[in-house]
Amino acid sequence: MYEFDYRRPNTLDEALEALRTAPDGKLLAGGQTLLPTLKQRLANPSDLIDLAHIQDLKGISVEGDTLVIGAMTRHAEVATSPDVRARIPALAELAGDIGDRQVRNRGTIGGSIANNDPAADYPAACLGLNATITTDRREIGADDFFTDLFETALVEDEVVVAVRFPVPVRAAYMKFKNPASRYAIVGVFVAQNSDGVRVAVTGAGASGVFRVPEMEAALAADFATGAIEGIAVPQDDLNSDIHASAEYRAHLVGVMARRAVAACG
């Protein structure tokens, strides 16, 4: 790792101030992506600004029909939270299947979505549930938040504060894991929301998480696995790498989507 300075703000304002004044400051959440990246010397920030001591970024609350999850909430907390389990069990299960137990004890939802790894799980839940991302200065809809591989709508000194998930009628997430890394080769989040059906795919897209409008329309008309049988996603927009070809991923999107619909019950 290259050298850096370490800062430990106690409030969001202090964190923003630290970000603005550091020559090249970077936020540190759970560190489960950032620290491995630094160990490989793939980044060289001047300062790490640790968000762990800012109370306003932590915790899970229920506001009417919305579940609000603070940016610094660990994956393990989301997986075991009675509020999440009762209202959006698919989200609790998704969180409980991220990486391994030790990664879940440190990794956070804010870090995961800010990082926007094309094979990460939370982006599929945000897009599938039509979540809203609250930052220090604005609200960003999930459709606008995830812009490209490892790219989001966040500007340089913007901090994710919370993610707001509308409670769906029903939802399920199905992930075909890479057995070595546990990241998704393909993951499909299907949700029947109060304003329509959403199908969000992670792991497969050449530019990150995406929706499948044809499947959404078919499921809106008839929420059954048969309704999406035969709907294929174009291979041109999919990722090919050592783990899976675009053709294989396209096939998996169909399989995982049907399994998710079936799991919705």
Binding site: Y6, G31, Q32, L35, P36, L48, A76, D100, R101, Q102, V103, N105, R106, A180, S181
Partner: peptide
């Protein structure tokens, strides 16, 4: 790469990879 778990310790009662924490 934070994948092997040889470094696991407990931090405030929960298991953590001590190679992936400062």
């Amino acid at each position: 790469t934070s994948q092997c778990g040889a470094c696991v310790v407990h931090v405030d009662g929960v298991s953590v990879k001590s190679c992936t924490m400062l």
